[in-house]
């Protein structure tokens, strides 16, 4: 059986940096799996996520989504992005659109769903993230935590096969992190396939089927469950975990 996502020997070098941002990275993600990537800033975690929905074009390697190479020039990048939801560190909500329009835009323009139906779908998802009462508000009128919940809802609205989370809680005040984590945990329970870059060790411990530690564009260590947290093997992983636990 093919994996939902298979990354083979991915290399990305930015033109102005001598060191590659991604150096021969290979990952497999099965359907329903929650994979957490941890690592210091600049380790290539975000670049990796961005390669998966081609916001960044890798230089070498293959990315297979359900067995199809998405880096193939003939592969329709807009179809790919419908199947891969992305949640950003800085939310990136469409600031001139109300919450509900943030969700329905993709449904109507990309999927061609009529606006009435799209609004129903969007309202259901807003209820899931407990923001139905904010449907007609603008993003600037919401708290950070509420904005990120809209960010997650916007990605979920497209019913993606894979959700990418790029440090979804890093821009939030500590007391707002919990509401995002609990939504992510409930998604994990519903067997949404998720690839999560985060510094929230708590989320990793509770939800991860696998944890990957990255440093300087390379995968240093990969362990099932939370073995990487409880029993790290590589000295650099141990060092990193010690640093963030202090």
């Amino acid at each position: 059986m093919t994996s939902l996502l298979e990354i083979k020997n991915l290399v990305k070098t930015y033109s102005k940096q001598p060191e590659p941002a991604l150096d021969d990275v290979s990952i497999k993600v099965e359907k329903g799996e929650v994979v957490v990537i941890i690592g210091a800033s600049g380790s290539g975690k975000s670049t990796l996520l961005r390669c998966i929905n081609r916001l960044v074009e890798p230089n070498e390697g293959e990315i297979l989504l359900e067995g199809e190479n998405i880096l193939d020039p003939t592969y329709n990048v807009n179809v790919l992005r419908q199947n891969v939801g992305m949640v950003f560190q800085s939310f990136n909500l469409f600031s001139h659109l109300t919450v509900i329009k943030n969700l329905t835009l993709g449904l109507t323009k990309v999927k061609g769903i009529p606006i009435d139906e799209a609004t129903n779908v969007a309202m259901d998802i807003l209820e899931r993230v407990d923001l139905a009462d904010k449907a007609d508000n603008y993003p600037a009128e919401l708290s950070g935590g509420q904005q990120q919940r809209v960010g997650i809802a916007r990605a979920l609205a497209m019913s993606p096969k894979l959700m990418l989370f790029d440090e979804p809680t890093s821009a939030l005040d500590p007391e707002l992190v919990g509401e995002i984590i609990s939504i992510m945990l409930s998604l994990a329970k519903e067997h949404m396939t998720m690839l999560v870059v985060t510094h929230e060790i708590g989320f990793a411990r509770e939800a991860a089927d696998r944890i990957i530690y990255m440093d300087k564009g390379k995968i240093i260590e990969e362990q099932p469950g939370n073995k990487l947290l409880t029993d790290p093997q590589h000295p650099r992983t141990k060092q990193f975990l010690q640093r963030i636990r202090k």
């Binding site: 992005r81 419908q82 800085s90 993709g106």
Partner: peptide
């Protein structure tokens, strides 16, 4: 307009032209 707006629009599946026009 912050770069993230274009990234978010593209990540939803809008084309470059649609993202320009709607976002």
């Amino acid at each position: 307009i912050p770069k993230g707006q274009m990234e978010a629009a593209r990540s939803v599946g809008l084309t470059y032209g649609e993202a320009m026009r709607h976002i």
